[in-house]
Nucleic acid binder design. Structure first.
Length: 281
DNA sequence: GTTCTAGAAC
DNA sequence: GTTCTAGAAC
């Protein structure tokens, strides 16, 4: 039914503004999606009102002027969205009902973000792509399966084709990027992600972003904590499961080292200043 | 995941 | 004195 189409008008606007410098030649993939969109009404645009109501009441008292709050709008209920299956393998079901990490918990945020048409950049019958809410580089997307798969541990050989498709969509995101010719991209998973629901990072290697603020951010994308998508696929093909090595969290404490020239920098500000030499604006 | 802030580092 | 980090709280 739903084949490779963008989410809705707002998503279309967003992508148009983001890629405003695209040439017509570069637009080919985007154009295909747009034409598909024109021929069909986006079902995602008729989501119901937010019934979760968990975003405005329980926050601790704090100044509400910060702009990030604005982007924390919760998505409509998941029922309202087109989903191909009734989550027969909802591995996260038990965990989501725990009092500590229930639906309102921050770690469940991707589940609502991925349902939010305003966040969606691409979707098909198997996956959805959203822009990372706190991008750690000039381009930073997340590819998520509609199917509720809580983490890498929950992946089995039955997910092999799904994970391959996620990689394929990730590659397409890179191809349609206006700066794909000058920027390098990596696609991979965090060894121990903070957010529930399997998500594939597609991130440009400039790491030029105000949201990249600390050592954990840096090392999670530049050390072996970042597991290449291809390695995950290979693990699934070879062993039918994904095993994450021990001691991964220690990698987050490694000294700050430039991923380009391997120079060690003593502080995050120094690192950011150094990165400018590799990635001038 | 982010924000906030005490206190370490300079 | 300011800058920056790390850990608690969310």
């Amino acid at each position: 039914m739903l084949k490779c189409q963008f989410a809705g008008l707002s998503a279309r606007k967003e992508i148009t503004s983001q890629f405003s410098c695209l040439t017509y030649r570069q637009l080919s993939w985007v154009e295909v999606q747009k034409r598909l969109l024109k021929t069909k009404n986006a079902p995602g645009s008729k989501f119901k009102e937010d019934t979760s109501g968990n975003h405005s009441s329980t926050k601790r008292p704090r100044e509400t002027t910060s702009e990030d709050r604005e982007s924390h709008r919760e998505a409509p209920s998941m029922k309202a969205a087109k989903q191909p299956e009734k989550a027969s393998e909802a591995i996260n079901h038990g965990e989501a009902t725990k009092t500590s990490e229930g639906f309102g918990h921050w770690s469940q945020g991707l589940k609502s973000s991925m349902q939010d048409p305003k966040m969606q950049v691409y979707k098909d019958d198997k996956v959805v792509v959203i822009k990372d809410k706190y991008p750690k580089a000039r381009y930073h997307w997340l590819v998520l399966p509609w199917q509720a798969i809580s983490s890498l541990k929950a992946l089995g050989d039955e997910h092999c084709n799904l994970v391959k498709h996620m990689q394929k969509v990730a590659d397409q995101m890179v191809q349609q990027c206006p700066h794909a010719d000058t920027l390098r991209f990596r696609t991979g998973y965090h060894a121990i992600p903070s957010m529930s629901h399997v998500h594939l990072h597609v991130i440009s290697q400039d790491f030029d972003s105000p949201c990249l603020k600390n050592k954990k951010h840096w090392n999670s994308f530049t050390s072996d904590y970042f597991i290449e998508s291809q390695d995950i696929i290979q693990m699934l093909e070879t062993y039918g499961k994904v095993t994450v090595k021990e001691g991964m969290s220690e990698l987050l404490k490694l000294p700050l080292r430039c991923h380009m020239c391997h120079k060690e920098l003593s502080t995050i500000p120094a690192l950011k200043e150094h990165l400018k030499s590799h990635f001038p604006k």
